[in-house]
C-alpha cells in the first residue's frame, strides 16, 4: 500500500510544481534572512560564513546555536499549525476552524501552565504530554459540538472563541497564583525566541509523523469534506478517518504549543490562502502547500517582529494576530456572501 501511495504523492507534486516550488524558494530566502538578521548586527557575509564554514568562531556558534534553531523551529511550528488548521477545517467542514479559533491552543496552554506550576523543574520535553492532553480535551468538546451538526458554522467559531476566553482566563488565574508571570508572558504571547536544538528535537518527530500521515492518508482524509453518507458510499470508514484526523490535529497543535506557546491565526489563514493557489483542490496537494506556506508565514512574521521593534523584538504571536485579524474578517465577510 505504501508504494503506490508514495508514487501518487510524488506524481501529485509533479503535477502542481509551480506554487510549491515558488513558495519553497521564498521560504529558503526567508530562512536565510532570518539567520542573517539579529540584534548582534552580524553582517550578511559573516552570517552566511557562520552558516557554511564550520570554523568554531563566535559567529559560527551564534549562527548555529541561536539563529539557525530559531529559524528551524519557526519552520516546524508553522508547518504543524498550518496542517493542523487544514485538517481541522476539513474535519469539521468549517472554514473558520483552526487550532486557535477552536480553543485547542488555549487548552494546551492551560495544561502546560498547570504542569509547570505543579512541577516547576520540568523542561520543554515534559510539557508535550500535558499539551496533548489539554489539546485533546478541548478538541473533543469542539468535535462533539460540530459532529452533532446543531451549531452553525459561525456559532461553532463563536463557541470556540468563548471557550478560548475561559481557558485564557484560567491561564491568567494560574499565573497569578503561582506568581511566576514574568517568565511566561513571552511564551504566552506565542514566540520562537529562546529556541534551541532541544526544542527542535521535541517538535521534530511530531512534525514528521503528523505531516507524513497527512500526506499519505490525504486521499482518505479528503473524504471527510463530504458528508458522512457519501463518505461511507465511497468505501471509507468515516469514523476511523475522523479519529485519525483529530489525532493528527491534537499531535500537531499540541507539540507546537509546547515549544512556542499559542501562536494564533497561522492555522486559520494559511489553508485559505493555499486553497486559492493553482495547485490547490485535493487535500494532499493542499497539505503539501500548507507544509510550505505555514513555515513561510511564520518565518516572515518572526522576521518582521524582530525588524519592526529593533533592537527589542515582538513575539511572533502578536505579529500573526496583527496580520491574521483583518484576514479573518475578510474570510468571515466572504462566508456571509455564500
Amino acid at each position: 500500500m505504501a508504494t503506490p501511495d508514495q508514487h501518487t504523492v510524488s506524481s501529485e507534486i509533479r503535477k502542481a510544481p509551480a506554487p510549491v516550488l515558488a513558495m519553497a524558494g521564498l521560504l529558503a530566502v526567508a530562512v536565510v534572512a532570518s539567520v542573517c538578521v539579529g540584534a548582534s548586527g552580524l553582517s550578511f557575509s559573516r552570517a552566511l560564513q557562520g552558516l557554511l564554514v564550520w570554523d568554531g568562531s563566535a559567529d559560527h556558534a551564534l549562527v548555529l546555536d541561536v539563529r539557525l534553531p530559531r529559524a528551524v523551529l519557526a519552520v516546524l511550528v508553522g508547518a504543524n499549525l498550518a496542517v493542523a488548521g487544514l485538517l481541522a477545517q476539513t474535519l469539521t467542514r468549517n472554514p473558520l476552524a483552526s487550532p486557535q479559533t477552536f480553543g485547542i491552543n488555549a487548552g494546551a496552554s492551560v495544561a502546560i501552565v498547570l504542569t509547570v506550576a505543579i512541577l516547576p523543574g520540568l523542561g520543554t520535553g515534559g510539557t508535550v504530554l500535558p499539551a496533548f492532553a489539554g489539546a485533546a480535551a478541548v478538541g473533543a468538546i469542539m468535535w462533539f459540538l460540530s459532529l452533532s451538526g446543531a451549531v452553525t458554522t459561525v456559532g461553532l467559531a463563536l463557541a470556540g472563541i468563548t471557550l478560548q476566553l475561559v481557558l485564557t482566563a484560567l491561564v491568567q488565574a494560574l499565573l497569578i497564583m503561582s506568581a511566576s508571570t514574568q517568565d511566561l508572558v513571552f511564551w504566552l504571547a506565542g514566540s520562537v525566541t529562546g529556541a534551541d536544538w532541544s526544542k527542535v528535537s521535541v517538535i521534530l518527530p511530531f512534525t514528521i509523523a503528523g505531516c507524513a500521515a497527512a500526506l499519505l492518508f490525504g486521499r482518505h482524509l479528503g473524504v471527510l469534506e463530504l458528508d458522512v453518507t457519501t463518505g461511507q458510499s465511497l468505501g471509507q470508514n468515516t469514523r476511523h478517518v475522523a479519529a485519525l484526523a483529530s489525532l493528527l490535529v491534537v499531535l500537531l497543535a499540541g507539540s507546537a504549543v509546547a515549544v512556542s506557546g499559542p501562536i494564533g491565526f497561522v492555522g486559520l489563514i494559511v489553508p485559505h490562502i493555499v486553497r486559492r493557489l493553482p495547485g490547490g483542490g485535493d487535500l494532499r496537494r493542499l497539505a503539501g502547500l500548507c507544509l510550505v506556506g505555514g513555515p513561510l508565514l511564520l518565518v516572515c512574521a518572526d522576521l518582521l517582529g524582530r525588524v519592526v521593534a529593533f533592537p527589542a523584538e515582538l513575539p511572533v504571536g502578536i505579529v500573526t494576530a496583527l496580520i491574521g485579524t483583518p484576514t479573518f474578517l475578510l474570510l468571515a465577510a466572504r462566508q456571509r456572501h455564500r
Binding site: 459561525v154 476566553l165 504571536g317 494576530a321 485579524t325 474578517l329 468571515a332 456571509r336
Partner: peptide
C-alpha cells in the same frame, strides 16, 4: 462588511483577538 448579526459577532471576536495581542505587546514591553 454588510451589517448582518453574524458578522457583528465575528468582528467582535476578531477585535477581541486584536486587543488581546495589543495587551500582550504592552505586557512584553
Amino acid at each position: 462588511l454588510g451589517g448582518s448579526l453574524t458578522t457583528l459577532v465575528l468582528v467582535g471576536a476578531a477585535l477581541s483577538a486584536l486587543a488581546g495581542a495589543a495587551i500582550e505587546y504592552l505586557l512584553v514591553r
